[in-house]
Design a binder for these strands. Structure first.
Lengths: 204, 204
DNA sequence: CCAATAATAGCACGACCGTTCGGTTTTTTG
DNA sequence: CAAAAAACCGAACGGTCGTGCTATTATTGG
């Protein structure tokens, strides 16, 4: 890894943290330069525009999310255990274990939903990929016999995602001490609806 | 209503629309002045700071939400019909029937969750009030015998809110043509879990 | 209708924004 | 080790930001 790539990575790391707190748009080149110890123009040279910087931050965050939330979960058993692992890791991610300001993807989803451009496209792509992973995981749970065979994997991914958004609200904005409990209960209700009944399990 | 109050209201109306699109922070005094036809300083005089303007926008939006989503729903029958009405009206609200950029409350929830100050306090207060209304509506559904007597109204409000956040994501960011269907199915699943079984209904 | 008051405009300010450019340092390469 | 290339800095640019002033216009109450 060359010098340039190394500093570029350091910049993106700081940028992701900054963006998680104040948003992608309010993350300015000046603040970021100060946070990294670089000059404004020196930093800017790595990205040819702010829009490009924002897009790369999104990609960087998506990679980090894959690494810290998805990949560890995919070492768990296929089906429901893996889904539970994704859920738990994502909650930790929202709590700010990796980025101080919580989930950049959830935040940028509402920040850029009405702003056409490269950044929005990147966020849409990232979010669709994530939903596809969740859908695929639900399909695996069906194949494993954990979920009912007539379950709708896409519908599951929607409801799964919704719960995490709700958790984000209670935990980060409202700081509700019951946030985790509320979220867990919702997830249990979701899983129990999709899980094969015991009588159906005996079919296997 | 005096002249000042009238123009202040017009400003807040435009401001809410602008904020729904580009966020509360990126809604600048200059843009807002141009949109309303006022001068920057003339507009500024109505609010003594931008922070105060933002806080008043939140209050204005909360009032509008009450008027367009909650109040019509409260003309419906107590219990589940009322809850369904809130759900339907809120979906229309998110679709942008009232504000072009969708639900300001959902957007500002993630925009200000890490920014202490008056604006954040206002958003927290608004969101808590909203969740309280939902909780109370669930409690009424219990009292009416629509929901099981051992149902948790607060838990219901969390899951209800979560679904709307999920809908916001699919509808406004991803523009998923199935957004409404996904959301409706989730809401049906939520209601059916909480609804009293028919055998329990015969107790009455 | 006139005086008191409120509403609005014009202008200027310092600060920060994203961006460009030319020069200097550092790294990489042959 | 020298030459080529990459990385980085400092200064400056036109703009916009939020926010004060002062003056002028419009509204209101007696």
């Amino acid at each position: 890894m060359s010098k340039g790539e190394k500093t570029r990575d350091k910049i993106l790391q700081k940028a992701a943290g900054l963006a998680s707190i104040c948003g992608l748009e309010d993350m300015s080149i000046g603040k970021l330069a100060e946070a990294t110890g670089l000059s404004k123009s020196g930093l800017f040279a790595h990205f040819k525009s702010k829009e490009n910087l924002q897009a790369q931050v999104i990609q960087w965050v998506a990679n980090m999310f894959t690494e810290e939330v998805l990949r560890p979960a995919f070492r768990e058993q296929r089906g429901v255990p893996r889904i539970r692992a994704i859920y738990g890791n994502w909650k930790d991610w929202i709590d700010g274990e990796s980025l101080p300001g919580g989930c950049v993807m959830i935040a940028s989803s509402t920040e850029f939903d009405d702003r056409p451009g490269t950044v929005r496209d990147e966020i849409v792509n990232m979010m669709n990929t994530l939903l596809d992973v969740l859908t695929k995981s639900a399909q695996i749970a069906i194949d494993e016999g954990h979920f009912r065979s007539d379950a709708d994997p896409r519908q599951f991914s929607f409801e799964f995602e919704s719960i995490l958004h709700g958790y984000h609200l209670l935990q980060r904005l409202l700081k509700d001490p019951d946030a985790s409990k509320r979220s867990d209960l919702a997830m249990e209700r979701l899983l129990s609806t999709y899980e094969a009944t015991m009588s159906k399990n005996t079919e296997n």
